[in-house]
Simulated scan of single mutants.
Amino acid sequence: MDAITRQGLITGFACLFATLIAIAANLDQPYWAAITAYMVANVDPSALATKAVLRVAGTVAGCILGYVLAIATEGFPVLQALVMFMAAAVGTYWRFRSRYSYAWILGAVSILMLIATSITEPTELHDFAWYRFYEILTGVVVATLLSFAFTPLAHLRLEPVAVTVSHDVARHQALSAGLSIVLIAWLWALFNLPSLLQVMITSLVIVSADIVGTRLRGLQRIMGCILGGCLGLLVIIIDAANFWWWAFALTAGIFLMSRLHLSPHPHAYVGTQAGLAFLVTLINGSGPPDSIEAPINRLTGIVIGVAIMTFVSWVMSARLRPAAAA
């Protein structure tokens, strides 16, 4: 069995087990445990260990700082917008300029989630912060233990990434990310957009080192979202209420999508996003979904986030090109 096939099987079962453990522990959003298991998966044990450590570290730091900032700015919309701008901008800048980029972006995402929760459901802020930590930890532990149990561990070590992006490019993309997050919050308040958290997360994670990369990543995210979302909805339509069908479909679907997600293919990100969309479609707060409303809202949030970030990046790029030419 080749490495990708083996890791695909491990990832499928890791997502299922992480979900079941999160549900048994009565965590608020079990799909985050499954998403974490999916995202830390890697055919290289050292890369997996690095992502696992950085994901936990970034989440812990982001939850602590985000909770403090959310409490301090609650009821002050201008300050909340400023904190969201800074979290997105700083997280994006160091995502491109730090060897520990994965921790920075996870920290920024956690801060944004807590600020957004203080806006939409302020009474749930404390519980949300703890749930966020437990959900991420559950996914990391399950994925790591299963992977290490079935993968050779010779020369296991942490491998921070090399910095390849210039200061100017990182600063430009950081500004685009910060402005996009503030625009999203304003549009959400104005038009009551669905799934504020999903829109914010999507807009932040698609940022690439250049405008072309951001557009391509956004297109791949939409393609993956459509693929994974449609497959998830098909599973629901067939018989989501049947636990054994749901468990089999979740495991098999993630295995198939991991084949692309874990590969070196130029469009591997389509597989990444397809798996994420599949998981958020199939997993509800207490298990299999009992309606399609929540999955549809999450998928809609992904599309809106891609559109807003792509637009802001395009505008920023267009404004900077004349200055560069001069």
Rank of each mutant, 00 (worst) to 15 (best):
R6T: 03
L9R: 10
T11I: 02
F13R: 00
A14R: 03
A18D: 09
L20N: 03
A22W: 02
A24S: 14
A25F: 11
D28V: 05
Q29M: 15
A34N: 03
I35K: 00
T36L: 05
T36A: 09
A37S: 05
A37N: 09
Y38T: 01
V40Q: 04
V40C: 01
N42I: 07
D44E: 13
P45Q: 11
A47C: 12
A47P: 05
A49E: 02
I64Y: 07
Y67L: 15
L69H: 03
A81G: 14
V83P: 06
F85G: 07
F85I: 02
T92S: 13
Y93K: 10
W94T: 12
R95I: 05
F96M: 10
Y100W: 14
W104F: 15
G107F: 04
A108G: 13
I111W: 03
L112V: 08
L112N: 02
M113T: 04
L114A: 04
A116V: 03
P122N: 10
T123E: 15
E124K: 14
E124P: 03
F128R: 10
Y134H: 07
E135C: 04
E135G: 06
I136Y: 01
V141L: 15
V142H: 00
L146I: 06
F148D: 06
P152G: 10
P160V: 08
V161T: 08
V161N: 13
T164G: 11
S166H: 08
V169L: 15
A170G: 09
R171F: 13
A174V: 09
A177Y: 07
L179E: 08
L183D: 05
L183Q: 10
F191M: 13
P194Q: 10
S195A: 15
S195T: 01
L196T: 00
L197S: 14
Q198T: 14
V199D: 07
M200R: 00
T202R: 06
S208P: 02
S208I: 08
V212L: 15
G213I: 07
R215A: 15
R215C: 15
M223Y: 12
G224E: 02
G224Y: 00
I226D: 03
V235L: 01
V235Y: 01
I238S: 05
A240N: 04
F243T: 13
T251W: 04
A252L: 11
A252Y: 03
A252Q: 02
L256G: 09
M257T: 06
M257Q: 05
H261C: 09
L262K: 04
P266T: 06
Y269L: 14
G271L: 03
Q273I: 06
Q273D: 04
G275I: 03
L276H: 06
V280Y: 10
T281Y: 03
L282P: 00
P288R: 08
I292E: 12
I296D: 05
R298P: 06
R298A: 05
I302A: 07
I302D: 00
I304R: 05
V306T: 00
A307S: 09
F311N: 04
V312I: 12
V312T: 11
S313P: 07
A318I: 00
L320N: 09
P322T: 06
A324S: 11
